[in-house]
């Protein structure tokens, strides 16, 4: 019976990513059979031996659904993003990196030069007396060899192409993927382009099961290893940073259920564009001090505010890179 139904054509691609998003697709487990019954996977580098040329040969709009995971870090990521945009009816920015820059986006705290210096010259294990660094083009007897151009800025997918939907998460919760996938293959009505899908529209704190009081008076912040979590009180109230106030629901509280604070991978709530700014506001609210010196003393406990508040979202925030 499934045979009679027209299968959709689907692609999954990784830009600057760790591979976790592709694995989250595999994590549908036995539902993978339903996926392959409903969709032909026409391009998926982690699992299939298809080539870029195969995608180039497809007519425009040939692919029904593309899940692009990973940030855009180099010219190859950008090229494939544009190619897949052209070949796809629905392009989804899948996962935090593609949505907001993600962990690779933290590289926006450094410049390309700083990264190259560190990686090719300065690391403790590097001996590079000839100071060799990757060149985008290199001539050898057989012709010109090419490497992707490494950009100074890590970009989100939406920085380089028009994106139909954003699916947050590091990686997206597999259950959400199944829901979205089912909606698409059954032809259900989809939200307007540009929407975040596969996520809730509340803040984690609104639905979190940890006990909270009205009176959050924090006088000291702790790193998670410095305190024994009681397993039930709101992390923030225990002085442990938790991104819950500034983060969308949808992950089924993966971290909090595992007794770890939320790190913000689902991105900002619908009412905000900049999760770090929202988090700064939330942190300022819970600190129970009124004098500048005392406030500063509490803030000294936050070792890396920028890195913490923008752990997954630096390239998509107002100040999307460090000024140099």
């Amino acid at each position: 019976m499934a045979e009679e139904k027209q299968k959709i054509k689907m692609a999954v691609y990784w830009g600057a990513a760790c591979g976790g998003c592709c694995v989250s697709v595999l994590d549908v487990h036995e539902a993978l059979f339903d996926v392959v019954a409903a969709a032909d996977l026409v391009f998926w580098p982690i699992a299939l031996d298809t080539k870029y040329q195969d995608v180039e040969d497809m007519p425009d709009g040939f692919i029904d659904l593309t899940l692009y995971n990973g940030a855009v870090r180099n010219s190859e990521n950008e090229h494939i993003a544009k190619l897949l945009r052209q070949k796809s009816k629905i392009l989804v920015a899948y996962g935090s990196c593609s949505h907001m820059g993600g962990i690779p986006g933290l590289a926006n705290f450094s410049t390309k030069e700083e990264i190259f210096d560190r990686v090719y010259h300065d690391t403790e294990s590097t001996i590079n007396t000839e100071r060799v660094v990757p060149q985008p083009e290199f001539e050898v007897a057989e012709g010109v060899l090419e490497l992707p151009v490494f950009y100074n800025d890590v970009r989100t997918l939406a920085d380089v192409v028009e994106v139909d939907y954003f699916m947050p998460g590091c990686p997206p919760q597999t259950a959400r993927l199944v829901e979205v996938f089912t909606a698409i293959v059954t032809g259900a009505e989809l939200p307007p382009p540009g929407s975040v899908i596969g996520a809730g529209d509340k803040a984690q704190c609104d639905e979190c099961s940890r006990k909270k009081t009205e009176n959050k008076g924090v006088k000291k912040f702790y790193r998670p290893w410095e305190v024994v979590d009681d397993g039930e009180t709101c992390f923030l109230e225990q002085g442990i940073l938790c991104m819950g106030p500034a983060t969308r629901t949808g992950c089924d509280f993966r971290c909090i259920q595992g007794n770890a604070p939320c790190r913000g991978c689902y991105g900002p709530t619908p009412d905000s564009t900049d999760p770090g700014a929202k988090m700064m506001s939330a942190i300022a609210s819970v600190i129970d001090e009124k004098e500048p010196v005392a406030i500063d003393k509490v803030l000294d406990d936050l070792v890396d505010p920028a890195g913490y508040f923008y752990r997954y979202s630096l390239p998509s925030s107002y100040i999307r890179r460090k000024m140099s």
Partner: peptide, 9 residues
Amino acid sequence: RRFHLLKRY
């Protein structure tokens, strides 16, 4: 408090 935090950021 926000101001102090913003400055650090």
